[in-house]
Design a binder for these strands. Structure first.
Lengths: 220, 220
DNA sequence: ACCGGCCTCCCCCGGGCGGGGGAGACGATC
DNA sequence: GATCGTCTCCCCCGCCCGGGGGAGGCCGGT
């Protein structure tokens, strides 16, 4: 069963681009399009897509309100992937707070876009880039624990995964983490892979960066 | 089982001070002393300490050569903690490159010294300890650039190397850095290797950690 | 009793990474 | 002119890393 996607963007060009990229994948199917947030809810009810790729900046009803509306009124709601042009778009964080599951840069490479859709479809959050940092800032970062907890909640890291991430952020290799936790290296690799997937990181370096940027670990 | 330590320093006063500080800990035991690097190897073979606290500047055989010698000739070698007087002692980085596991400032507070010994005993590298952060704090961190420059001076990174480190700290791979800087990947690898050597980092992840911990790059 | 999440470990496999060399070009310095 | 440092690129090589699978045990919720 393919992943079904609903595209919501006011620019036809963007919709066409996303459609082209996503339809090229055998396991992804674009089941519908909308030009603004107002028409999303009936479409979601009708098409029941797995994922809604939604622009934040739209006329009539923006992506944030649309996200809230969908999550509030539809049961078994789809995963919502926020589309944005700018990395530091403040609306993105609004959207994430509104319950979106991840975000997507328009200038991302096709492979990344496809990857993002698959990830959120599988139920994982996509948080990696600069966005998480802002999330931390929102919480005021008093003691840094709030931010860490917020990341935990969003990324839904398990206890073990969080533990592994902390050790990764101290520069330990898989073998060293394994020794520290008294488990096999294969086990550590498994946890590391989960962490990378949940954070949307490509390698351990990016995961550690995310850990610092989010306040999950603090310098000093 | 306590952590066993061998002290190697040409100044008796320093040895006495270290012994006093370390012996005060129930879990740390000073098992021997040496006044120069020449006598280290037999002592290590005989005493098999967990950690060797070794001065860099010593007569006969300096800490760098002694470190190399120990790591080359002894199997299951101890962790080596380099002792230095000056924060910007160029020999320290030589020693780290030679395989030392961390460094220690003579004027560090007792608690920090104890902490350092425990950390390396646990198998962790001590590359950018509190001293560097304090250095950053001294500069007031106005804009963070001063701290970054201070780290540059410490590690003596060239402009290009610093540039590469910044990109590494943004999660870019060697190929991506190469594309960004419009050079070959081999060139990037060369710079990365230099950065790792100068920072005493084992891999790019540790280098990025060092960048964050030192204030060379700042979260948020 | 069943199912799902978590933790644990295993396989194969490709590719990026890092070490260890070397080398040429350029500019600054001596 | 000679030397040194920097930047550039090249080689070989081993290994850790990460992806993609799968699988069993444990526990808690339904």
């Amino acid at each position: 069963m393919p992943v079904t996607v609903l595209l919501v963007d006011d620019e036809p060009l963007v919709r066409a681009g996303l459609r082209a990229v996503l339809e090229a994948q055998p396991d992804i199917e674009v089941v519908g399009e909308a030009a603004d947030g107002a028409g999303v809810i009936p479409l979601v009810r009708q098409l029941r897509p797995d994922v809604v790729a939604m622009d934040v900046r739209m006329p009539l009803l923006d992506g944030i309100e649309a996200t809230r509306a969908v999550l509030r009124t539809v049961d078994a709601p789809p995963k919502i992937l926020v589309i944005t042009t700018f990395e530091n778009d403040e609306y993105v964080y609004e959207a994430l707070r509104a319950g979106a599951d991840g975000f997507l840069l328009k200038r991302a490479r096709p492979a990344e876009i496809v990857h993002a859709v698959r990830l959120v479809a599988e139920g994982e959050s996509l948080l990696f880039p600069a966005s998480v940092r802002q999330l931390a800032a929102q919480y005021g970062d008093e003691g840094g624990n709030r931010a860490a907890r917020a990341v935990m909640e969003r990324a839904r890291l398990t206890e073990r995964e969080a533990e592994v991430l902390r050790l990764m952020a101290r520069g330990l290799s898989n073998a060293e983490i394994a020794a520290r936790l008294v488990v096999g290296t294969e086990t550590v690799k498994s946890h590391v892979s989960s962490v990378l997937a949940k954070l949307g990181a490509r390698d351990r370096t990016q995961a550690v960066i995310a850990a610092y940027e989010s306040g999950f670990v603090a310098p000093g």
